[in-house]
Each structure stands twice: as structure tokens, then as C-alpha cells.
């Protein structure tokens, strides 16, 4: 499977990545190469192999349901570009 320039632009947009026009062809070639490798791997017979969800062969540890965090809003908001009335302000979202 190979990607077109338009595919690359669409993926970049979905991931909100800005890419330069002159690099598009280059990305298309590299990403196609990755997909090519996947296609090759996909040809292996994996009958009876359970798909792996995580490279570590371990199970998730769970925490007790307890409130352990304190309010650090003022601290966190010192790095926010804009705040008001305790809220983070962002460019207007229109639905």
C-alpha cells in the first residue's frame, strides 16, 4: 500500500501537524515504506497467536479509590496563556 500526497496532508491535519509543502512527497515515500513493511509482516501466519496489547508482559495495577490530590489550580494556571474566574481561556469554540 502506498500513500499519496493527499493522504499525507489528511493525516497531518487529523494530528494537527504543520508540514511544509516541499516535504510532503518525502513523507509519503517514508510512510509508504513503513506500510510496506507492515504488509510484509501481515503475510506471516499468526494462527493461534493472541494479539498483544502491550509489549510488557504484565497486568495493570490498580489504585484504591481515594482522593489524594489537593487543589493546585493557581500553580497550574501560572503557565496558562490566559485564565479568568478560574477558567482556562481558549479561542472561541463554535459547535
Amino acid at each position: 500500500m502506498s500513500l499519496t500526497a493527499n493522504d499525507v496532508k489528511k493525516i497531518a491535519h487529523l494530528a494537527r501537524l504543520g508540514i511544509a509543502e516541499q516535504d510532503v512527497e518525502h513523507y509519503a515515500k517514508d510512510l509508504s515504506g513503513v506500510l510496506e513493511l507492515m504488509t510484509q509482516m501481515g503475510q506471516l501466519n499468526t494462527d493461534g497467536v493472541t494479539p498483544m496489547a502491550h509489549p510488557l508482559d504484565q497486568m495493570q495495577r490498580l489504585r484504591e479509590d481515594a482522593v489524594t490530590e489537593t487543589d493546585q489550580r493557581d500553580h497550574f494556571q501560572t503557565i496558562a496563556p490566559q485564565t479568568e474566574a478560574g477558567l482556562y481561556l481558549v479561542p472561541k469554540v463554535i459547535d
Binding site: 479509590d65 482522593v67 490530590e69 487543589d71 489550580r73 494556571q77 478560574g86 477558567l87 482556562y88
Partner: peptide, 23 residues
């Protein structure tokens, strides 16, 4: 639950904005 699904911040309804939002 008392705390969030992936953090120890409180889930109580109606708190002051962003006082129950941890890192």
C-alpha cells in the same frame, strides 16, 4: 467513585472551576 478514573483528584460535583483538575 470518590476519585477520578486515572488520578487521585476528587469527582465531587459543583466545585469551583479547575480546583479538582490535577496534573
Amino acid at each position: 467513585t470518590k476519585s477520578k478514573i486515572f488520578s487521585g483528584a476528587a469527582t465531587a460535583y459543583g466545585a469551583e472551576p479547575n480546583t479538582q483538575a490535577c496534573a
